[in-house]
């Protein structure tokens, strides 16, 4: 943190605590200039410094660390992404109830503000930690890594990460999850996969949610799936309704299979 004004720390809160800084022990403070005098540059020769670094390299290092930790503990992690209002939290609550403790699970909730969603998850009977990103529009791997430490996850369990409601930014940030699951509700437009292609390309599973409402809408479910497959031909799709329970058995079976595979992979690591 800058000693002059305290800048350098965002407004991210994890379970109510501030996100720790990236500075490693012994590393010097990030130096920021605050005196205008210092901005008057000397007349000195310039030189070129080659960097060739990926802008997401740092996030990807944290994501790799998370992925190694999760696989060493047999934890199957899903990153749930969607627009706001697609029914993610309701779907999570129903999923928690239906799984009924097998496998054990925990939830990381990402929102810009409020603890509301973590409270809903806890009321449903699962441990949850809320990450408030402040002005941030997505979770990143460092936030998730710290949340994972605070959650004390069980081996061979399920970790559900509900990302900030946003179909754009979370696509670029790997959290170390096994799969991104994109949730599209039938009250949205069929062409959302075309309008926000990055997310549908990054996901392995699409849940077409609120399908119980289809009789009342003009939404063309086949067209939505066709558009999604144009972006990502390998995308798996489940038609689901958290309210009526349609599609839930298929979704739960997919989760259980992922958990079994994660546990088996851990066992084979010895």
């Amino acid at each position: 943190m800058c000693v002059t004004c305290g800048c350098g720390i965002g407004q991210t809160l994890i379970g109510g605590y501030a996100l720790r800084q990236q500075r490693k022990p012994g590393e010097p403070m990030r130096f920021r200039l605050h005196e205008k005098d210092a901005l008057v540059s000397d007349v000195s020769a310039s030189r070129i410094v080659k960097l060739e670094q990926d802008l997401l390299a740092k996030n990807n290092v944290y994501a790799d660390t998370n992925r190694r930790y999760l696989s060493a503990h047999g934890i199957f992690a899903l990153n749930l992404v969607s627009s706001p209002g697609s029914g993610k939290t309701t779907l999570l609550v129903k999923t928690i109830a239906a799984l009924n403790g097998t496998p054990p699970l925990a939830v990381i909730e990402g929102d810009q503000q409020t603890e509301n969603d973590a409270a809903r998850i806890r009321a449903a009977g699962a441990p949850a930690i809320q990450i408030n990103t402040g002005k941030g529009c997505h979770l990143d791997a460092r936030m998730v890594g710290q949340a994972v430490q605070q959650l004390n996850l069980q081996d061979d369990s399920l970790l559900l990460i509900e990302n900030v409601g946003n179909l754009v930014c979370p696509a670029s940030f790997d959290l170390g999850e096994a799969h991104k699951v994109v949730i599209l509700s039938v009250t949205e437009g069929e062409d959302k996969p075309l309008k926000y292609p990055d997310m549908f390309r990054a996901a392995d599973m699409m849940l077409l949610n609120k399908c119980d409402l289809l009789p009342h809408l003009t939404f063309d479910a086949d067209l939505a799936v066709e558009y999604a497959h144009r972006i990502n031909p390998k995308l798996q799709v489940i038609h689901i309704s958290a309210t009526s329970g349609d599609g839930m058995p298929e979704w739960l079976a997919w989760i259980r299979e992922g958990c079994r595979n994660a546990a088996a992979a851990k066992a084979s690591l010895g």
């Binding site: 540059s41 000397d42 000195s44 020769a45 310039s46 030189r47 070129i48 410094v49 080659k50 960097l51 060739e52 670094q53 990926d54 802008l55 997401l56």
Partner: peptide
């Protein structure tokens, strides 16, 4: 589909 910082001119 990538994003890289290539180089800097510094003094």
């Amino acid at each position: 589909d990538g994003m890289r910082i290539k180089e800097l001119e510094v003094e």
